[in-house]
Amino acid sequence: MSHREPSPVNASKEALRDQLLAARREVSVAQIASRAKLVAEHLLDEAEVRRAATVAAYVSVGREPGTGPLLDALTDAGKRVVLPALQPDGDLDWALYRGPDSLAPARRGLLEPVGPLLGPATVATADVVLVPGLGVDGRGRRLGRGGGSYDRALARVPVGTFVCIVLNAAEVLDAVPTEAHDRPVSAVVTEDGVRRLTAG
């Protein structure tokens, strides 16, 4: 029996991923660094972030919009920052961020926190959840890399939590193809600022 044909939605997602990843390769290291500082400033200005005790974040790698300045700004502001650790089954566990020296190389080119794992349900206790992705539209529909790890994690996050995707301004799109398991986000932050999104 032959492999199942990809669904039209999956084919659309793959084409869009290829396009967005190609555009990211054109962003210079200097641009990534300067935008990362702006993203940190914009997010620290948001009421939800200022009030948050615990923030679930992540470590950017490669040509992703940078999160280094943001992680340090959150820690400096006295926040408890938890970072994901990818598990063999593709789910995300979480561990505390204790500064750049507390990170170690992991599978798939990721940098992950060293230290005790706190359990996959930890993300549900965060006041703010910051997620990676490749694109988002005005209805909060997020395009990830296709692994499904963040859809599983976001399914644990209580409704009403401030869930924000970190992107380049050009990655805020008119429409993102979605499937039933795709979890929406409530905001996007880019070098241009924070924009609230309307799920629906």
Rank of each mutant, 00 (worst) to 15 (best):
L173C: 11
E112G: 08
D91Q: 15
A73L: 07
D18P: 01
G144I: 04
P8I: 12
S2F: 12
N168L: 06
G119R: 10
A30Y: 00
R80M: 03
E26H: 03
E179H: 12
L110G: 03
S186A: 15
L143S: 02
G200Q: 10
V81K: 10
P132C: 10
V176R: 05
D72A: 04
S12M: 13
D182N: 08
D174R: 11
N10L: 12
H181D: 08
K37Y: 03
A180Y: 00
Q87L: 14
R141F: 04
T190C: 03
T54Q: 13
R63T: 12
L96G: 00
A169V: 02
C164G: 01
A170H: 11
A106T: 02
L143C: 05
D18L: 12
L154P: 01
Y58W: 11
A155E: 14
A40C: 03
R63L: 06
R35Q: 15
L92N: 05
V166L: 15
I165N: 00
A95C: 12
G144Q: 04
Y58T: 09
S7F: 15
L71E: 11
V185T: 01
A104K: 14
R63E: 11
G66F: 02
E179Q: 15
V9M: 10
A11F: 00
R80P: 00
A36T: 02
G90I: 07
P105R: 09
V131H: 06
A104I: 11
D45C: 14
L70A: 01
V55N: 00
N10S: 13
V194D: 08
H3T: 15
L70D: 10
V157Q: 05
D93E: 08
A199I: 12
A30R: 07
G138R: 15
R98I: 00
V128D: 02
Q31L: 06
T54V: 15
K13F: 14
L74G: 01
V49Q: 09
D127L: 00
I32P: 01
P120T: 08
M1D: 12
R152Q: 13
T54R: 13
V59Y: 00
A180C: 04
E46A: 13
G68F: 12
A153Y: 07
L83N: 01
S102I: 03
A170R: 01
G90W: 01
R142T: 07
N168G: 07
R152D: 05
T161D: 06
G140S: 05
V27K: 03
G62N: 08
G135R: 04
A180M: 04
R108I: 01
A56P: 08
A33H: 02
L118A: 03
P158Y: 09
T75M: 11
D137K: 13
R35N: 15
E171K: 00
P100V: 02
R63G: 00
G115L: 13
R156A: 13
G138E: 14
A33C: 02
V159T: 13
R108Q: 11
P100L: 04
A23H: 09
G148T: 02
C164H: 03
V189W: 05
S60G: 12
A47I: 07
P84Y: 05
Y97V: 06
L143K: 11
G133L: 08
G144K: 06
G144L: 11
G115H: 05
R183M: 10
E5M: 11
D151C: 11
G160I: 14
L44K: 03
T190Y: 09
